[in-house]
Design a binder for these strands. Structure first.
Lengths: 140, 140
DNA sequence: CTGATTGCAAAAGGTTTGCATGAAT
DNA sequence: ATTCATGCAAACCTTTTGCAATCAG
């Protein structure tokens, strides 16, 4: 965690308590939270925190390549503390977002079909292993 | 086009003039239009057409598998008359959306990493061939 | 006829923006 | 002093919803 803070400092980021709170919460999280989820949790500890600050901090972290934003949900953005290229599945049963670590030889950065690809997001929709297992007992 | 209409009838779709207008416009289009783009064009010919009807018709066409919805733009939905699995690139220069017809062995429907994948959307962000060509002359 | 569809307008929800306050250097 | 971040609230846009009027079969 402390080398994350060093990294931010080196990138010239002014580290306010609010920003630290967002960074720390997000880097610990494994659930790809939305802005509002982050805001609601942090507000308990930092009652003066505003949603606009959460937005601007996430924008900043995205810009410097510390996190990535997902549009896998149609209605709102989710955030992933891991900025490296990987894919995601949204489970239609439990609504959770899972990281999908596969090395796709085609859907990747670089030249694809004469295009210069700089960023990739692959969104899979279906059922996660946990919900598949639950279904095995039932009919359906 | 007439076998499209037959197909809709066979699926039990009530064919109103508004729905026909949306279907015909979208099936001819190659630009992945947004709801508002569709609405603005159709309103010229059908002044009584409402945006709510465009929304509901697109929802209907999606449900019966005639079109697909893209979330490649962060702010609004785009629609693709081709419901088959294929991928897309959003060019950051011209803002156009291109179809990317590649056969990815990994990002596909079926079993992926112990998940049951029912739908796939791969969104590539970068520069399209036309804009790349334009850049060649310039320094950049 | 009768249920489905339409159009209108309002509501909802997420995101962005403007500006005054406040903190840091 | 000056710059930059914050918080608040309003504004903005897209999408959804409710309902009365209308239409398709």
């Amino acid at each position: 965690m402390s080398n994350l803070i060093d990294r931010l400092r080196n990138k010239g980021v002014v580290l306010t308590p609010q920003r630290l709170a967002v960074v720390e919460f997000l880097k610990k999280s494994t659930t790809h939270p939305t802005v509002n989820e982050i805001y609601k949790v942090l507000r308990k500890k930092y009652p003066m925190m505003s949603q606009a600050t959460v937005y601007s901090t996430l924008e900043l972290l995205k810009r410097i390549g510390e996190i990535q934003e997902l549009s896998i949900r149609k209605d709102k953005a989710c955030f992933d503390p891991n900025p490296k290229l990987h894919h995601h599945l949204l489970c239609r049963k439990c609504e959770k977002i899972l990281d999908i670590e596969v090395n796709c030889p085609i859907i990747k950065k670089g030249k694809v079909k004469r295009c210069e690809v700089e960023e990739v997001q692959a969104y899979l929709y279906g059922i996660c292993p946990a919900c598949l297992k639950k279904e095995h007992g039932k009919k359906e």
